[in-house]
Design a protein around this nucleic acid. Sequence first.
DNA 1: ATCCTTGCTGACTCTCTGGTCAGTAACTAT
DNA 2: ATAGTTACTGACCAGAGAGTCAGCAAGGAT
Lengths: 205, 205
Amino acid sequence: MNEPRYQRRKEDRPQEIAEAAFEAFAENGYSGTRVEDVARRAGVSKGLTYLYFKTKEELFKAVIRNVVTRRVDALIRIVEETDLPSEDFVRGPMLDFMKTIPDSRVRIVIRLLLEEGPRHPDLVDYYYENVVCRGLAAIRRFVERGIERGEFRPTAINDLPQLFLAPVMLSVVWKILFAKHPLDTDRLIETHVEMLLDHFRARPE
Amino acid sequence: MNEPRYQRRKEDRPQEIAEAAFEAFAENGYSGTRVEDVARRAGVSKGLTYLYFKTKEELFKAVIRNVVTRRVDALIRIVEETDLPSEDFVRGPMLDFMKTIPDSRVRIVIRLLLEEGPRHPDLVDYYYENVVCRGLAAIRRFVERGIERGEFRPTAINDLPQLFLAPVMLSVVWKILFAKHPLDTDRLIETHVEMLLDHFRARPE
DNA sequence: ATCCTTGCTGACTCTCTGGTCAGTAACTAT
DNA sequence: ATAGTTACTGACCAGAGAGTCAGCAAGGAT
């Protein structure tokens, strides 16, 4: 009646460990998480972690890359494929997308990047090129298309796609720091979007 | 010809050590800074640091409090004392104030709070009450005054003073992470302010 | 049943750093 | 001068946690 003490599951381990690491990092930050915590959470020994990830830093980078890759693609796809009028698109799919970010894994990733980024320039570069740049480029193309179609007037926002994301960023930071003082981030983002649209409609004086 | 190896300067030491600590934390973050680094930078021995600050954590908190207290007072004062029309005030003193933040010590404080905040709830509370709340309250009063005077129309921004600060926050985060990819934060903030004013003027449809 | 490969364990080492404290020397008072 | 006070030093300690590795046992091959 002696059950096996462990199973060999070479294929699944890396993913499981990375998942456990994400959770642990999310709760305690990078430097506040011990590799042994990650291992215990994944139900393995500390040694095994080091079989699949050379160092704690490697593990960290793998976790970030793992999480990040998907979500931007989603944004880019909905931007490229839509045939809605620009205003409707902003009020619809784009707004929905923006509202999901502050409660998604992206928030955790940003928190972790802010904590550890300065010590891992290559990781920040990776994030910049694969997420930030591509996301901003998609927004910029969307605005340009709106202008070509005559749905938007040309404004300074053309060069500043970051303006779309400003309230999202604020919401993320707020939720990291002031979780116990609730902020209606949905309403914040909605209002910001209305402002953007006002601005695209407004006559220069 | 033997010069004294050190001077006794009881009065100045705490401030000097706190200043050195701020610089060291700014460069390497909290956990990346050794107490000995701080001491060397301040030109004292490690032991002395512990004479004036009980623990590294105490030192950290003292540094944050030290930096933070002044700047909000400045904002509140200019808001309360101005007699400019609301639009002029926003385009003038308030805009100037907002533009200074991403390159000020506030940026460093936010970076440090994001790194260590989750492990020091009391420090976050202090920051929230003494900086965030008071700053937001000042903005809210300003908007209400504008509405009373008939210079602004009532909008959702009334309850969301955070919207004023969204691009400032984004600028801060951008400068923490992507220092090597310059962003024209002045222009970002100016454009955002123009959007805000458009919105206060716009007719509901 | 038995061997063999290798996924996996857990106790170990080693470094790093926060924190201590006995002793030293700078200033003061006489 | 000299003695007394205490700001200051620097060598030390202790704990924590990253990373290692010899050996064990799970599961497949024969």
